[in-house]
Design a binder for these strands. Structure first.
Length: 383
RNA sequence: GUCCGGAUAGUGUAGAGGCCUAUCAUGAAGCCCUGUCGAGGCUUCGACCCGGGUUCGACUCCCGGUCCGGGCGCCA
């Protein structure tokens, strides 16, 4: 290397701003003093793109940035290894879930996210303008998964977005989320609970095997939950919370945050909350034959929060119509859905799992926004 | 929605009526030093969210707004 080329190289390197994109050509040389044990003796340095200054946050992690600052400049935030690690883990979780479903004979499906009416009742939907009509963003693939059961697609799964226009403002809610949804024909609630605990346990194992560097960066000592997960009935959960003096709930109330947390602390690991009162579960949840006030609905719980809900579904047309009416909804609005129940609908069961919450609880993150690349909440619509 | 807390250089922070010409770190510019480190040293640059009020004097206190964080609610 001549002195002249060395001088021009030095000038190029000296003039570089931090985070500029370059190509270095040169000889790789072992060097004990270098941080990674080798150095590149450059013969050519090419500047592909010069980074502007100052940077919106410090990508080396030397100086912290608040979540809001990080989300405003997510592209820069993700250059921090700890931030990127979360999404490497998320990708591994999705890979594990997909491979598990494919191995188990599931079909992956895509259901529409633009829907005609607020058919499911209850939760608030985002209205959108659809040519000359009003339409909505779907809050769940629920009805479409069930229609596919009538189509003979006996085992389906979907990983896709769901939208909820609720004005909640917490560390565990977003207005757009990714839902992992499963529906299985000729299965009851117990069988799909097994699918779910296996899916979650395998995802943990996959991450433990494949993401050691990420877990280390994130300072997570990952415990793979063992199957079967504990089953706790709604009634037992209430009793547990009462004994601990941590609830004011009555049987039939929806479980509040305080009770949920109390039971989570007592159980201390993933568990299923089963046998919910029929009155607080949606119309498509199958009641027990011998005690219709109790349903075959279940939630998958992490000690910190709910991860997923599911149920054996009502497959009898008449019962379904009756339950829709009982919940104060108009069956006319459900015609596209109810039609699928008239010409031979197998019994079926399924569930939906919040991907962000799985990652959040797996990595013990503080805020769901940390587990989503570009989160959408009450106030944040960009980036 | 509601309650509590907060907003200071690009980023993260200290300061709680006059000690503020506002602290420290990081960063940027420059100089010096140096086979390795998040290198080091010195110099310089860069900030009090907005509007009103109280006061001789407001970054600091009061009122309103905006935005942020947390709890609860809502989340079939």
């Amino acid at each position: 290397m001549t002195r002249k080329t060395e001088a021009s190289l030095l000038e190029t390197v000296r003039s570089l701003s931090r985070e500029s994109v370059i190509v270095v050509r040169g000889r790789v040389k072992a060097e004990g003093k270098a941080p990674r044990g080798y150095e590149i003796i450059p013969s050519q340095v090419e500047v592909l793109d010069r980074a502007a200054q100052p940077l919106p946050l410090d990508p080396t992690g030397k100086v912290d940035a608040e979540l809001d600052t990080r989300l405003d400049s997510r592209f820069m935030d993700l250059r921090r290894p700890v931030s990127l690690a979360v999404f490497r883990v998320e990708s591994a979780v999705m890979q594990s879930l997909r491979s598990y479903f494919y191995e188990s004979g599931f079909l992956e499906v895509c259901t529409p996210k633009i829907v005609a009416t607020a058919t499911e009742g209850g939760t608030a939907l985002f209205p959108i303008s659809y040519f000359e009509r009003e339409a909505f963003l779907n809050q769940s693939p629920q009805l479409y998964k069930q229609i596919l059961m009538a189509a003979g697609m006996d085992r389906v799964f979907e990983i896709g977005p769901i939208f909820r226009a609720e004005e909640h403002d917490t560390r565990r809610h977003l207005n757009e989320a990714i839902s992992v949804d499963v529906e299985v024909s000729f299965a009851d609630h117990n069988q799909v609970m097994e699918v779910r605990e296996n899916a979650v346990s395998r995802a943990y194992q996959f991450v433990a095997d494949r993401c050691q560097r990420e877990l280390e960066l994130l300072n997570v000592d990952l415990q793979v939950p063992r199957v079967p997960f504990r089953r706790v009935t709604y009634t037992e959960a209430l009793d547990l919370a009462r004994e601990a003096g941590n609830t004011t709930m009555k049987w039939g109330d929806d479980i509040d945050t305080e009770t949920e947390r109390a039971v989570g602390n007592l159980v201390g690991e993933h568990y299923f909350l089963t046998d919910w009162p029929s009155s607080i579960k949606p119309y498509y949840t199958q009641p027990y034959d011998d005690r219709p006030e109790v349903s075959k609905g279940f939630d998958l719980m992490h000690p910190r929060m709910e991860l997923a809900s599911g149920a054996e579904r009502v497959h009898d047309y008449n019962l379904l119509v009756e339950r829709i009416k009982k919940q104060g909804l108009n069956p006319d609005g459900f015609e596209f859905y109810l039609r699928a129940f008239r010409y031979g609908m197998p019994p079926h069961a399924g569930w939906g799992l919040g991907l962000g919450r799985v990652v959040l609880t797996m990595l013990n993150l503080d805020n769901i926004r940390d587990a989503v690349l570009f989160p959408r909440d009450r106030r944040r619509l960009v980036p």
